[in-house]
Amino acid sequence: MAMGDATLRSRLSQSAPWRRWSGLLFVAPYLLLFAAMLILPLIIGLRLSTTRSDLFGVKAEVGLENYARLFSDPVFLKAVGNTFYFVALTVPALTIIGLALALVLNNASRWSAVLRAVFFASTVLSVTVVTLIWRLVLIPDGGLAAVIARLFGQAPIAFLSDPVLAMPAIALTTIWWGIGLPMVLFLAALQQVPRDLYEAAALDNASRPRILFSITLPAIRRTIALVVIIEIILQFQLFGQAQLMTGGGPNNSTRPVVLFIYEAGWKQWQLGYAAAAAQVLFAMIAIAAMAQYYVSSRKEPA
């Protein structure tokens, strides 16, 4: 019987059509889900973006009018600028701080385990809790930052009311909230670096910076690229922190594209306009992620 099964498997594996379709069958469940949950909504979104519609139906076909409106809408253009600014503030910081923490905590001591848990803990909080905590830190009336400023005889700074400081304050909140993920990814990557490379470097009496730049960073370059791409995609989608901490203000200085989309689609019932903005955001994320992928893969040695 066992021999019969083996023969059957052998025949099946040698049959060309079966070989062609068996792989597809394995991925079919995911492909179906991917098509239903991502491709189809993308197509529907594209279609909606050429209409004047609300959540209850399409009122008129308007072609590319929504896109033309978007690119002459100062609020949207500012939201695009704000989003890029936020990504520039957070992605390098999350990558560098995440890497630094991982390097420091990449050992087997008890304190490292405790600190890894501490730094990761903020990641499990919901955006509501995180923004509540940081509003309590940043508000000028009795907030922690205000108390510290008064200790040093300084007037409290109204971070969230200042158009210059509000976005860095949201970025700081986001970095505190999101530092756990890059740290854990880097830790996992660091634990994959072969020990013998470090032993060889130690025998050669290599300095710590030399080890970092010649062994560690090249060995985890794929993870660095992964972290940067993941963070670009995540941070382009800034929404909750801005909505809850500043509502997009002051003077439109912290309104990101996703908040613009939400306001246009849900508050103003301009679903077609919101869908057009969503397509622009999709293009922005795709271009940024692909550019990063292109740059990081080009650096790979042949």
Binding site: S161, G249, P250, K267
Partner: peptide, 18 residues
């Protein structure tokens, strides 16, 4: 409702000097 938000946002930006 959304217009009220816009009016408040712009008014606030103006009277706070932004």
């Amino acid at each position: 409702s959304p217009i009220e938000f816009i009016v408040g946002e712009e008014a606030s930006a103006a009277f706070t000097g932004q």
